[in-house]
Nucleic acid binder design. Structure first.
Lengths: 121, 121
DNA sequence: TGACGATATAGCGATCTAGCGATATAATGT
DNA sequence: ACATTATATCGCTAGATCGCTATATCGTCA
């Protein structure tokens, strides 16, 4: 019985590798940056992103670096600009998921999850 | 021009509300717990989960509480057991996404995202 | 080369998170 | 009531993350 307790589950190594990517991506401003880049459809520079989202240059650059380190974004030089674009399509699924999440959570009032979590205690 | 820079994007309030849920869910053991509960198909108690995943009782209980606080899981009493089940279906999408992610990243070698991130520097 | 615009990094204090051991609470059966 | 099993919480230390300011680097043009 001990051999099959975890068969069929995603192995721990994979989770330990992927979890940080998701965790670091799940940040309000960083998600917004990704959403912005998606809507724009083409690479944007740091200044554009910062101005559009109202975030400071330094902060914007830091977030971009984090996302780049995770392989979510990539940046290429264009003159004195740095153009960033989305390189990991799976984060777009995450955004789609958030859109649904949003509708379910805020429009429909308390969700099955929330009410269940309360009554369960 | 200032009015339409962020139209069509997920609003910041939504992101600030959803991001913590994703961030706290994106934890190796917690993802594994969710994956385990999904595979089992029916609610499981703390001891079962801990034994199956090889995690300490205290740690397991803590993770379950975090997931319950986020509305991802719910627990109901059954005698002296506490049976947990998944209440937020969207986390299953996250797991599916990880499975794809896993295949793309580990099987195909360096991914487009990773190579692009390196050449971009 | 020197000034300037654009981007990246360093350093800091504050806050959050991870695990762990010890202990407290809850439910059951005797 | 008491012992037992199951679950939850507490207290702690170490490490991660956040947002900010100041400063450094890079690329362009005169």
């Amino acid at each position: 019985m001990s051999a099959s307790t975890t068969t069929g589950l995603i192995d721990m190594e994979t989770l330990e590798r992927v979890a940080p990517v998701i965790r670091l991506t799940a940040h309000p401003l960083r998600l917004r940056i990704i959403d912005y880049l998606r809507r724009e459809g083409e690479p944007r520079c740091v200044t554009d992103i910062g101005e559009a989202l109202g975030s400071d240059q330094s902060v914007t650059s830091q977030q971009l670096r984090i996302l780049r380190d995770q392989g979510v974004l990539a940046g290429r030089r264009a003159g004195c600009h740095m153009l960033y674009n989305i390189t990991d399509p799976s984060v777009l699924l995450l955004l789609d998921c958030i859109r649904e999440h949003h509708c379910r959570r805020s429009s429909d009032g308390p969700t099955a999850a929330q009410s269940a979590a309360q009554t369960a205690h």
